[in-house]
Design a protein around this nucleic acid. Structure first.
Lengths: 301, 301
DNA sequence: TTTATTATTCTCTGACAGTAAATGATTTCT
DNA sequence: AGAAATCATTTACTGTCAGAGAATAATAAA
């Protein structure tokens, strides 16, 4: 028996005082009403409605049951309406995990405007270079710089690719010699960034040819911004996203090398649990991300 | 979709934190759990549970929905338990309609004991010689002295037969002459009781022979007890249930006539709306009635 | 690695909710 | 008064759907 409709029928009948009228309101045939009431009574073992063909009245038990049923149905319906706003517009709290540096470079400036565009949205942005378990920790979305996450049942939306450049200060190159081939790097000091796929091996590609350099380093630091600081201080060379050192290159603080070689790339993904019934708040943030990274790509020029 | 089970599944999954475990508790297979959740989400257009094969967590919307669902289901379950007592023992208020005189003769003495036997029962006994519409006026049961009520959809339980006697005061018979045949009644004063099938025609039967007397009367009164009072005052003759004048006959205040003729009978019925899911409180009162009328029949001897 | 558990998809089947037509009962209209 | 209309219910009947079973994919633990 479909209890839910039986209960709705019961309430409607009680309100209308008529089987036929209840049937009309609910879009059901009179036999359906009869059957629902009869089955509900059979299930409860209690007569709810005294009725002849012409008159009907709730029994005492029917009246008490009706009160509970009404409260129950109202709560359930209220629950649906509570969700209807979440289904149609971005509301609620959005929990997002993102790597520190990406967030600082790509997002943090634009977030205030994003939030002011969605006044009913609250954002919890957790900046963390860890690879978080978004289900366990309850994140709606995470940004990741890993490319090999297609296996999971999660959905990964590609946001953009960050090309890396090899660079150091002009003076460092002046004293240690500017490398002409990847193998020249062996003589230099490497600053290591432990996250990402290129932590311990730097790859350089040109014309189908691949050179791999083992990273030997005295300084490993898990933030690209700290890597940049070390570069600026003239400590050595490193691979770093072009974006992060754009200004330094323009203003001559840093200098690139091996420009003709293609090297490491980091592809950023937005990862979220499911494509089905994607909440508008997630949808909105996804769109925001895509826009931000697209804009960033132009700035990469 | 069966919303009721879907909601129960949803709550169980949320409580257990596992689809499989919820399935075990509810006696459903894993696919059934999956499907229920998926269909519920489809109906709402909202993702309620983020899940991989190994981990699951309610979404923000899922959490708010769960609260409503829990409240709703609790109310419904509470409603069922509220009825369970009414299904198993006589509790609540019992509304009964009965003719004044029958109630006084057969019931009122015994009712206190009946009520003390069922401490959770309240009785509203409406004494009214009217023929009430038990559905419209919300009675659980009515006692009627009419025999021709088999047509209705109501249930009629035969309680007992009251035989009538023709009587008057000895002095009345002395002055007006004691009737030897029904036709002798024409000369006497008739006290009329308007309810019942024998209001205007008195029938007398003997040996397959039927005599009918048209009642011509100056005094019609709708209570048998008032008829008795008029008889005692020597106003005339009347047909009255033997039971009502038992003492008067024993003590010589009244006297019967035409004893060899069979005359009017009133059959009393207990009438109630339905045999299906008969409430214990009604059941108990019915049993009480049957017992009372059976006892009364013995007293008729 | 293997093994075990979990969620999901697919296919299939029995049950069942609903409809239409017919019946019985009662009220209201003419 | 009778006739017509409305109402609840019963009886077939049908299309749908909820659930089980087997198979698959994903993940965690041993």
């Amino acid at each position: 028996m479909d209890r839910f409709t039986a209960l709705r029928v019961f309430r409607q009948v009680a309100e209308q005082g008529s089987f036929a009228e209840a049937g009309r309101k609910l879009g059901l045939s009179p036999p359906a009403i009869s059957k629902n009431i009869a089955e509900l009574e059979a299930h409860l073992g209690v007569r709810l409605i005294n009725r002849t063909t012409r008159r009907m009245a709730l029994t005492e038990e029917g009246k008490t049951y009706l009160e509970h049923v009404s409260r129950g149905l109202d709560a359930l319906i209220e629950g649906e309406t509570a969700l209807s706003s979440a289904r149609s517009s971005p509301v609620g709290t959005l929990r997002v995990s993102a790597p520190m540096t990406v967030a600082l470079i790509r997002l943090s400036e634009a977030i205030p405007e994003f939030l002011s565009r969605h006044p009913d949205l609250r954002l919890e942005l957790h900046l963390d270079d860890r690879r978080v378990d978004i289900i366990r920790e309850g994140f709606d979305l995470a940004i990741r710089g890993y490319s090999n996450l297609e296996d999971s049942s999660l959905i990964a939306r590609k946001l953009g690719v960050m090309s890396h450049v090899l660079c150091a200060t002009p003076s460092y190159f002046a004293t240690h010699g500017k490398p002409q081939t990847p193998s020249d790097l062996a003589k230099l000091d490497h600053i290591r960034f432990p996250h990402g796929p290129n932590a311990d091996i730097w790859e350089f590609r040109k014309d189908g040819q691949i050179e791999r350099i083992a990273v030997a380093t005295r300084y490993s630091v898990s933030s690209s911004l700290a890597v940049r600081d070390a570069l600026r201080a003239g400590f050595g060379v490193s691979l770093i996203p072009h974006q992060y050192v754009e200004k330094d290159l323009q203003e001559g603080r840093l200098e690139t090398a091996l420009d003709t070689w293609r090297t490491a790339e980091v592809t950023h993904y937005a990862v979220y649990p499911s494509r089905q019934h994607l909440a508008p708040k997630i949808r909105a943030f996804l769109d925001f991300l895509v826009r931000q990274f697209a804009y960033g790509r132009i700035a990469d020029r």
